[in-house]
């Protein structure tokens, strides 16, 4: 009886008097990948925070595996990996110690070996014994990515995963996301502009005025909004991810 990993229904969120999300509908099946784009301050981070359970909806529902994300039970949270715009890394611990710490929290088996593999993979093996406080922003982002993916989550929430990454880092991040999708992880991510993803199926949605709308990006990276101009305005169900099974199993 497996539940849809990510399902948002009529999700609304306001901070104080300011509404950020109006009515977001989204469903991501295992192996589905949704990329959310939009202007600065349109609420991408808020949306991802709410999916991750860091923030509580003001209206509607944000469900992970059929349970409300903000009060997901401890063991269920093992199945969710989150990369926020904050790295969640301790500046006074080394790269390895940070990974081992989070590995222990997430019940990763053979934590030392797993941390070693990830450091190697992220190209951080040489600095594994350096404190994170000495890292550049890009190195920190690589480590934060490893931290989010360490426990092989079934849901991956990535807020601007490519920010601060150099070309090599971006290639690495893309490969990791592709692998995760191939292992049937449901991925929700946001990017600043055109996502540098390729080689697998993903769906780009645009967050505008508090709702998600289907968006297609042209080659120049400008967003050619297909939905809004062709009469799909309002609360569009932009959530069905192409090609993947969305049937919630009864």
């Amino acid at each position: 009886m497996s539940q849809v990993p990510v399902r948002l229904r009529g999700l609304a969120k306001s901070y104080g008097l300011k509404p950020v999300l109006r009515s977001v509908e989204l469903e991501i099946a295992p192996g589905g990948c949704v990329v959310i784009v939009g202007d600065n301050g349109c609420g991408k981070s808020t949306l991802l925070r709410t999916i991750a359970g860091l923030s509580r909806p003001s209206g509607g529902e944000a469900l992970l595996f059929g349970e409300e994300a903000w009060r997901l039970a401890g063991p269920m949270r093992q199945r969710v990996g989150v990369l926020s715009h904050q790295s969640f890394l301790y500046p006074n611990l080394t790269a390895r110690e940070n990974l081992e710490f989070y590995g222990r929290l997430y019940g990763v088996p053979k934590v030392g070996a797993a941390a070693g593999r990830w450091l190697e993979r992220m190209g951080l093996a040489a600095v594994s014994r350096a404190r994170v406080g000495t890292f550049s922003r890009g190195m920190e982002q690589r480590l934060a990515l490893a931290r989010a993916m360490l426990a092989a989550p079934e849901v991956l929430v990535l807020d601007e995963p490519f920010s601060a990454l150099d070309g090599e880092g971006t290639t690495l991040a893309v490969a990791l996301i592709k692998e995760a999708v191939a292992q049937r992880t449901a991925v929700a991510m946001s990017t600043h502009g055109r996502p540098p993803l390729s080689g697998f199926e993903f769906k780009t949605l645009r967050l505008v005025a508090g709702v998600l709308k289907p968006a297609a990006l042209d080659e120049a990276g400008r967003e050619a909004v297909t939905g809004a101009r062709t009469g799909l305005a309002g609360s569009v169900d932009g959530g069905t991810v192409g090609g993947f099974a969305q049937r919630p199993e009864a």
Partner: peptide, 18 residues
Amino acid sequence: LNELARHLALNELSRRGE
């Protein structure tokens, strides 16, 4: 009043969406 202001802001947001 806060609820009302929130409601108004929400309407404003959805109007922008249209």
